[in-house]
Simulated scan of single mutants.
Amino acid sequence: MTLWDGVLPFYPQPRHAAGLSVPLLIVILVFLVLAASFLLILPGIRGHSRWFWLVRVLLSLFIGAEIVAAHFSAEWSVGSVSTKTSYKAFSVERVRAHVGLHVGLEGVNITLTGTPVQQLNETIDYNEQFVWRVGQNYAGAYAEALEKGLPYPVLYLAEKFTPSSPCGVYRQYRLAGHYASATLWVAFCFWLLSNMLLSMPVPHYGGLALLITGAFALFSVFAFASISSVPLCQLRLGSSELTTHYGAAFWITLATGVLCLLLGAAVLSLHYARPSALRLFLEGSVKDLESPAKGSSPLVLSNPLHKQFRASDLTISTNL
């Protein structure tokens, strides 16, 4: 199927940009609620342990939120260009617009925003998603876009990722996204396991789980980076060329993987070099809550109904 098959020269109704995807919004909302709940109980923690738990919990929540959010993000490979280009099929009318291409693990997201938004008596503000996850038909979604008569820049970019495109990048991007997604979910499972193990008297296993979490996060980055050897076709819109580069999700996932490796290595190093320091770091704050404050008198419990024994009250005699 070519770009113009089935396209009629009619004026489509634009769809406004949808913003973040619903799964991504849910993930952000859940982790924000967890962080807010912890901050509400933070004033009830006394002493220096308050800052210990603040750093520990927020850092752990950041790692978990980033792993899940990166899975649904479309910012793994991004590119944008402002140009003057054709707007509709079989039309000489041209518009000035900002075109964005966002490639994620499950598909591509294409944005088209007019500069200004109101041109040709229309509102030019599009955000179209084409998914290649398992069970979804990318070619079918592209065919529907042709029938709707979406603007030329959207159809032009979407056509480059179709299975029948001469670019031949569909299979590479789909496989890279599939393996990157799978390794991210494994990393998330080991992140949950590390939190449980670090709360138990087996911190070295928690350190190992953190190392594995970081390793699988890096595996996902390397899996997606494997498509770098596949050159993307030239994307020319009007007189401008759109080029892509790694996006925020790629770099943040890479940083998260390195962070997990460093934290896991630190836990294991302390376990083998100074286990007492590791116990103090992980458990000392809890003991601080249970121990009395410095300078306070010890608590003595006594029952007034019973006479307290003294050394002079006890007499032992023996008759021979």
Rank of each mutant, 00 (worst) to 15 (best):
S164F: 06
V300L: 15
L42R: 10
N303F: 12
L105D: 00
L146T: 00
V22K: 14
I124E: 03
K287V: 08
E106R: 14
S49R: 15
F309H: 14
R96Q: 15
S21I: 06
E290Q: 13
G257E: 01
Q234D: 12
F52Q: 12
L314K: 14
P203H: 09
Y246C: 05
S296A: 13
P116Q: 10
V202G: 02
K287N: 08
L232Q: 09
Q119I: 12
S312W: 06
Y246K: 15
D313S: 12
P298Y: 09
S181Y: 01
L150D: 07
V258F: 15
S302L: 07
F219D: 13
I67N: 06
V78L: 09
T253D: 15
T183N: 14
R94D: 04
T243E: 05
G79H: 03
V103S: 02
I41P: 04
W132S: 00
L61A: 07
A293Y: 11
T111M: 08
N121C: 06
F161P: 00
Q118H: 13
A255Q: 07
A180D: 01
V99I: 08
L197R: 10
Q13V: 10
N303H: 09
S220T: 03
V55D: 08
L235W: 03
G114M: 07
A70N: 08
F161K: 00
Q13S: 11
S312H: 13
P23F: 06
L146F: 00
E106M: 12
G19C: 11
S229A: 13
L42M: 10
P9V: 05
L150I: 10
Y152D: 05
P203C: 08
S91V: 04
L25K: 14
V267T: 11
C167T: 00
A89T: 10
I212E: 02
D288K: 08
F62C: 14
A143V: 02
T111Y: 12
T83K: 05
V134C: 03
P116D: 13
K88V: 03
G135F: 00
A143N: 05
A158G: 03
V27N: 02
V92W: 06
A70K: 02
A158V: 02
G207T: 04
K84F: 07
S226P: 05
S165V: 05
A17F: 07
V68R: 08
R236L: 04
V103W: 00
L120F: 06
W185G: 00
S82Q: 11
E290P: 01
G238L: 13
G44F: 15
A187S: 14
F309Q: 12
Y173E: 13
E122I: 08
A187T: 02
K88N: 13
Q308N: 09
L261M: 15
L54E: 10
F222W: 10
I41F: 14
S199L: 12
F219K: 12
L157E: 05
A225Q: 12
N195K: 02
S226M: 06
I212S: 03
G135L: 01
Q119E: 11
L301S: 07
T113N: 12
A277G: 09
V95Y: 05
T244H: 00
I212A: 08
V68Q: 08
L40E: 12
P163G: 01
S312Q: 14
A249R: 03
V267L: 04
D125C: 04
V68L: 10
